[in-house]
């Protein structure tokens, strides 16, 4: 049986906050073999990818009222890896406030991607761009990776708006 640490990020999400740093902090605090039981107001699909790439398997279930419980279980490789070595973005790393905000929700695909990439070209290293989209920008991510930008993204609590943050020149992307 896996021993789980509980983390409820629903209050943070309901107050409009960004729980990514908190979640990564909790993940890094896990003892070898320990798992994480996460409670959220929506199914955190991008987080499943991020922790999946760090060697966690997950089991997600809806627990009523639109809330989700996800149990992340470490596989053998994840438990032995040194913390920090497996995180693409250190948990303590809080990103600066976005210098640009875009609302691309009503644009025809692939226009949202074109505008985000155009904006990144005019921004300085380390600056952050925030954009609202109406779906996960699947074709954008490889393009950001090729250009050496970092990103974080996830669905807002309404489950319909996807908010992506792009940090210029921040290397490999993460999501939450």
């Amino acid at each position: 049986m896996t021993d789980f640490v509980d983390l409820d990020v629903r209050p943070i999400l309901r107050s409009g906050g960004e729980p990514f740093a908190k979640i990564m902090e909790a993940v890094q605090g896990l003892a070898p073999g320990q798992g994480l039981r996460l409670l959220a107001t929506f199914k955190p699909t991008p987080l499943l990818h991020v922790l999946g790439s760090q060697g966690f398997t997950h089991e997600a279930k809806e627990i009523g009222g639109g809330d989700w419980q996800v149990e992340f279980t470490p596989t053998a490789g994840a438990a032995s890896a040194a913390p920090g070595a497996r995180a693409t973005t250190p948990a303590s790393d809080t990103w600066p406030t976005p210098v640009r905000e875009m609302d691309n929700r009503d644009l025809d695909p692939p226009e949202p991607m074109v505008r985000i990439l155009a904006a990144t070209e005019s921004m300085a290293k380390g600056e952050v761009l925030a954009a609202l989209l109406c779906r996960e920008p699947i074709f954008l991510f490889p393009e950001l990776a090729k250009r050496g930008h970092g990103w974080r993204g996830g669905f807002e609590p309404d489950g319909k708006t996807y908010r992506v943050l792009v940090r210029i020149g921040a290397g490999a992307g993460a999501a939450a």
Partner: peptide, 21 residues
């Protein structure tokens, strides 16, 4: 049209004017 556009213009999107799909 979409995959051709992404293959050809993806690498230069935002860097130079490109056609729409």
């Amino acid at each position: 049209a979409f995959v051709t556009w992404l293959e050809c213009y993806g690498p230069v999107l935002g860097k130079t004017p490109t056609p729409r799909v």
